[in-house]
Nucleic acid binder design. Structure first.
Lengths: 359, 359
DNA sequence: TTGTAAGCGTTATCAC
DNA sequence: GTGATAACGCTTACAA
């Protein structure tokens, strides 16, 4: 009785309650019911094909009967795997993110993973904290428009699979929307409408994407013989756009791109509040094509981002790295697309060139 | 060498990697560095005050030096606690949720908890699955506008603290916005503007809140001598609002409430597209005051919900139940408030009564 | 106040 | 193919 060698391990007492107040069933319960060893149950339930067909079904039946659910923590302890992916966004209030979130979320549950969401509220510091915390409990991480430094991101990526959205970092997987296509179309359109001076209301200084957008606008403008200037700015919100209105009016530009739709909407409304007519006096364009960008009067012209795809492919990358190891860190080109609505029109300063669209 | 009695437990090999590829430090490392027993480290780090001040600081220093981070899974295993709260929303794309999400999220991190978000995409089935899954890994759950049956919710609540938002379920904690105040103000205003027939474009059939809104509109209308009718509807989205346009035009109502702002916007735009003037021909009101509801022309009049507070107090409740046990299931009255904008005006059918607002 | 040791529910490595 | 058994990293009686 006191000699324990070869005895059945004592039945551990579960910590989780069930509906009726009972303890949650464990693989020990299944083992008992199916008349096999707990380790066999574990094999049957987690590594298919390593157990005889007969016992496999016996075990599955028992599990079903007991309404068994694996204990994620117990599983995570020896394996380190949680079937959970983290996603950090800078501002959950920005509608641009919710398609990214939904994309990543549905892609995750399709592969039987769970998405964990965190918000950094536009702060690099908070973002690093959130990322570190998350990294401890997830299998991989997606950083959407991160404000972190390259070094911090690389550091995070050295621990677990990390994929960044709308940014590139050396040696780190990334998914970006291509900018080029949409901007080229937009500039072509604006030039045809007689615009010669373009302004860009920038987003946050540390935003890779804001930089990128400005650079391609600048490059494309030069190439087309248009002049382009930046209006420095602050927060990428409706309010941020409002605050850029004065600077925009002081410049020469007749057409202005904003870092994102939120800013474009803010700029437009502030200008309108001051009696400025859009698009007669200024043409305004945003980026992303968020919810609500077509609610305004005039509805906003914008360069549409493949938000949903950004989310799904980012998640796909994380999972890929997870089981194939560090990948090629490809940078897929997800196309942007010009969506012409009412906030763009002919330049007030110059006659439209050949091929201009009708008013 | 082979006799193990009384020997120091063998150092377990960690499973998590660190920056340089090293293993993550455990309490064993700290113990070694501080010259104490691992259990003392555990006490020092998790139950403050149960260790001498001197060893406490020695341990904290060691922890800091090693850059120690608790392993959440290892901790969760014996305790069952994860310091994580789940939040399930029906549609992450609905801006009404993001203030709830942010409210709950900030309240959570303020108390050093993490919020885990899931979406049910308006499906009761998916919602139950998501809720069950979540419940296994979180300490408590918040259900925002759940589509679940009362029975399902009670069943979930019997396992761990559950709080519902904008709904009541017997014996389950709940937080709702009061409807009454906002609706009363709105109806008073409409009556003063000469409106006599009111319509309500309903939300999803299973939505408790849609029911509630209709009931108070009906009751208040009767009380004021106005007639009120429902327009049945489907999805609580912009599109759902659009589809209600025909039915609205066929009725006698001159003022129409919609279950939420999304539907109100859809209805308004569809009507406008058909050449109907808002507010001259119809007055339109939404509920919630979401992002974008002031972008429209005319801007939407709406009954504002305390979204952020809904989120924070719901989270507060969960935490309260968590450490004080099942609470009184109070139903806090979070006030709604009428926000008058341009989508409401005098009735086209009747002269405004005394005290009508100016156009 | 601190050390000892037994779990928590899995997975993984052995034997057989 | 299946059964023992030792981790995984932490908490928590119980002793000392």
């Amino acid at each position: 009785m006191s000699e324990s060698t070869g005895m059945q391990a004592p039945r551990p007492r579960s910590t989780r309650r069930m509906a009726g107040g009972k303890q949650a069933p464990t693989i020990y319960d299944i083992a008992e019911l199916a008349g096999v060893n707990p380790s066999t149950v574990s094999r049957a339930l987690s590594t298919p094909g390593r157990v005889s067909a007969k016992t496999q079904t016996r075990i599955e039946d028992a599990a079903r009967k007991l309404n068994y659910q694996v204990n994620a923590f117990a599983r995570a302890l020896p394996t380190g795997r949680t079937r959970t992916i983290g996603l950090i966004v800078s501002d959950i209030t920005n509608p641009a993110y919710f398609d990214i979130i939904r994309g990543a979320g549905t892609a995750a549950s399709a592969r039987d993973y769970t998405l964990m969401l965190a918000e950094s509220t536009e702060s690099a510091e908070l973002e690093l904290t959130a990322a570190r915390r998350m990294l401890a409990t997830v299998d991989g991480l997606i950083l959407a428009s991160p404000r972190l430094s390259d070094a911090d991101i690389s550091q995070l990526a050295s621990q677990k699979p990390v994929v960044v959205i709308n940014r590139t970092v050396d040696g780190v997987g990334s998914v970006v929307a291509d900018t080029e296509a949409g901007v080229a179309d937009a500039l072509r359109h604006l030039a045809a409408m007689g615009h010669r001076h373009i302004a860009y209301v920038a987003g946050p200084e540390r935003s890779w994407m804001s930089q990128r957008r400005w650079e391609t606008i600048k490059a494309r403008s030069d190439w087309s013989g248009l002049s382009a200037t930046v209006v420095a700015s602050g927060v990428p919100t409706v309010d941020g756009g409002r605050r850029a209105a004065a600077a925009v009016r002081e410049g020469f530009a007749t057409a202005v791109f904003c870092y994102n739709d939120l800013m474009a909407i803010g700029l437009m409304r502030e200008l309108q509040a001051a009696g400025v007519n859009i698009p007669d006096e200024f043409s305004i364009l945003g980026f992303d094509n968020i919810f609500g960008s077509d609610f305004t009067t005039p509805p906003l012209s914008t360069i549409k981002s493949p938000l949903h795809e950004l989310g799904t492919t980012a998640l796909g990358y994380v999972l890929e790295e997870l089981d194939k190891g560090p990948g090629p860190h490809r940078l897929p080109v997800l196309r942007t697309e010009l969506v012409l609505r009412g906030s763009t029109g002919p330049s007030p300063r110059q006659a439209p060139g050949p091929g201009a669209a009708t008013a």
